[in-house]
Design a protein around this nucleic acid. Structure first.
Lengths: 150, 150
DNA sequence: TGCAATTTAATCGCGCGCGACTTGAATGTT
DNA sequence: AACATTCAAGTCGCGCGCGATTAAATTGCA
């Protein structure tokens, strides 16, 4: 029978016992599953996440996007420029506060949402999990993230 | 009461409901938590994972490391060269099969294990979770990874 | 008003991470 | 033995992702 002992320092040093590695490798696995689906939209996985945030609420600042995605402006700025070059978003300085840049969907960017509508279901499918289990796991991992950043 | 409905396509499109995003952002959170701990060892987070694999079993090929870490040789080769330049590992062609490169810990690399011994406990601490919950979550995520790669 | 402190993006350098490709070695087939 | 196939590692180009820094705008305050 498994007992709830405090793990030995030996056990803690085994890669299989690293929660961080489970997450690290699951993240790569997700990237691979998304690739063929997103290739059709000409989006990378991080770019897709930006689009999801914008589809949810258009016209956001770089800072607002970064807060939601937990990304720095040094990551977002080049990404947003690529999305702009592809014609999916526009970037314009806010007139009332010139420090901020407002990111808005173009018509093409808005239209892309329809083409992307089948993606989430495809991913859920690839996990082979029930929606309820998926939701529970998602909440647990989000809570873990909160604890780590706290 | 929450009901186990099939989620609507609207719900599926909300970032908060993306399991992949929970994992994506939790992975970044882990990287941040590790940073101050690993800075003292002069290791990045992926480099640390390579060292963990080698501490577990010395003298492995690039392919073997890649299998365990789910990484390609195109990722590992430059990383291993950096670890070699730092004096933590050596890279030598296998005499009996010149295609393979054997990666071995140097004395310094082996010694580093002691300095790193406090790291896992520090991470567990940062999660604020019980070892049993941690283990359960880890297994669920590893199973998810397996499903995704299947 | 004037000037310091703060805020927001952007820039730069570096290390992943991968797909596509190359190189050289081992293996299989005839 | 000769040649094609397969296999392992490495190279290259590109897109993140971040820390450190910079530039410019706004805010706070004496």
């Amino acid at each position: 029978m498994a007992k709830a002992d405090t793990p030995s320092s030996e056990d803690l040093m085994r890669l299989d016992n690293f929660l961080c590695f489970a997450i690290y490798s699951a993240n790569h696995a997700f990237t691979r599953v998304y690739k063929p689906l997103l290739d059709q939209l000409d989006l990378t996985y991080p770019q897709y996440l930006v689009m999801v945030v914008l589809w949810e609420k258009d016209d956001q600042t770089v800072g607002s996007l970064g807060e939601k995605l937990f990304l720095e402006s040094s990551t977002l700025t080049p990404m947003l420029k690529r999305l702009e070059a592809m014609g999916y978003v526009s970037r314009v300085r806010d007139r009332t506060d010139e420090r901020q840049v407002r990111v808005r969907l173009t018509d093409t960017g808005r239209a892309l949402r329809q083409k992307a509508s089948a993606v989430p279901a495809g991913i859920v499918d690839a996990t082979g999990m029930e929606p309820a289990d998926l939701a529970r796991l998602r909440k647990e991992i989000a809570a873990l993230r909160t604890a780590l950043l706290g």
